[in-house]
């Protein structure tokens, strides 16, 4: 059952991706402006611009450019970066690991710490604690990422010196082996924590609510009555409480990428977020499209994975009934 469902979901991916690609391509190419300026700078003459236009195939009619482009995409060729003169996909691929590292660390942080704090918050019980947990998590949640990033850099990195201010590595040292891993980890912590903060707050809320619900439920009461050990009861209750965490997680992966853009700018983190901004500014369309496809693709894939995780967590769910 679930295998068939997943196959069906898989089959939906290529047409979705293609449609997004075409729409985005059209949007980019119908917009005013000319990538030539980025290529040619501000001093060229007419002949120079014409020559550049020909070199990059920008003199052909739009439908033809689109057809060529789609043909190439099917062969795994996303075009050549106007600015870099290299395949757009490899430009994105080089930057992707940094963003994936940042986003996945934030994901792990927000989930583990979020669930742990959620369990603790549930211990506080309902009533009076409810308001304070609600307000504090929502406040953390409502803080604009760039603001939190500014405050974190100024306070924790600059004033207290606990963390480096920028980058992914220490520019002064060429480290290798374990020392290099430690160096990256040291640089990673602060931006990942800033990126994780909102999600973490959300997870605290979800887990706490879930556990409080479960405590009132029949099966937990029964288990307790039968004298089951506390950790087993917690395990079962937590398993249920995790369901909304997982749902929300799958749908927020796109947002981790989004938050990454702002965090990358403040921390000079060398990921795709900054690549997006610079290629939008220079109108490097092949790279822009490649970033888009890759991010949208990542969101699709993670959604699939979440569906898988779901069946494992909650066998009650019938996929035939979904959608």
């Amino acid at each position: 059952m679930s295998a068939r469902y997943l196959l069906r979901r898989l089959a939906q991916v290529p047409p979705s991706a293609l449609l997004i690609l075409v729409v985005t391509w059209l949007l980019l190419h119908l917009a005013p402006g000319d990538p030539l300026i980025a290529l040619a700078g501000q001093y060229g003459d007419e002949a120079y611009y014409t020559a550049m236009r020909e070199r990059f195939g920008l003199d052909q009619p739009l439908p033809q450019q689109l057809a060529t482009y789609l043909g190439n995409v099917l062969q795994g060729d996303l075009g050549t970066s106007y600015v870099r003169g290299r395949p757009a996909l490899s430009v994105v691929a080089e930057r992707l690991p940094a963003t994936l590292l940042l986003a996945s660390t934030a994901l792990v942080l927000s989930t583990t710490v979020g669930v742990a704090l959620g369990v603790l918050a549930a211990r506080l019980g309902g009533g009076r604690a409810d308001v304070s947990v609600r307000v504090s998590t929502l406040t953390l949640y409502a803080m604009p990422a760039f603001w939190l990033a500014q405050l974190a850099v100024l306070g924790l990195a600059y004033r207290l010196g606990w963390f480096p201010i920028q980058g992914m590595t220490d520019a002064r040292r060429s480290l290798s082996g374990l020392a290099a891993v430690g160096d990256v980890f040291h640089h990673l912590l602060l931006p990942a924590a800033v990126l994780a903060a909102g999600e973490l707050a959300l997870n605290v809320r979800l887990v706490r609510t879930g556990l409080l619900e479960a405590a009132r439920s029949d099966y937990v009461r029964t288990a307790r009555a039968k004298g089951a050990p506390g950790h087993r009861v917690l395990y079962h209750a937590l398993r249920n409480a995790m369901l909304p965490v997982v749902t929300v997680l799958g749908n927020r992966i796109g947002m981790f990428f989004t938050g990454a853009v702002l965090v990358e700018v403040v921390f000079a983190w060398p990921g795709v977020g900054r690549l997006l901004l610079t290629s939008a500014q220079s109108r490097d369309l092949p790279v822009l499209l490649a970033v888009f496809l890759v991010v949208a693709g990542a969101v699709l894939v993670v959604n699939l994975l979440v569906d898988l995780l779901y069946t494992r967590l909650d066998p009650r769910i019938s996929y035939a009934a979904r959608d």
Binding site: Q150, V153, L154, A157, Y158, G161, P164, I165, Q166, G167, D170, A171, R172, V265, V266, F267, A268, P270, R274, L277
Partner: peptide, 21 residues
Amino acid sequence: LVMRVIPDEGTQLLSLESGEV
């Protein structure tokens, strides 16, 4: 020589003052 890409000028300044660049 190491040239480090730091897009934000506020971050650049803090990096200079903290000795990272």
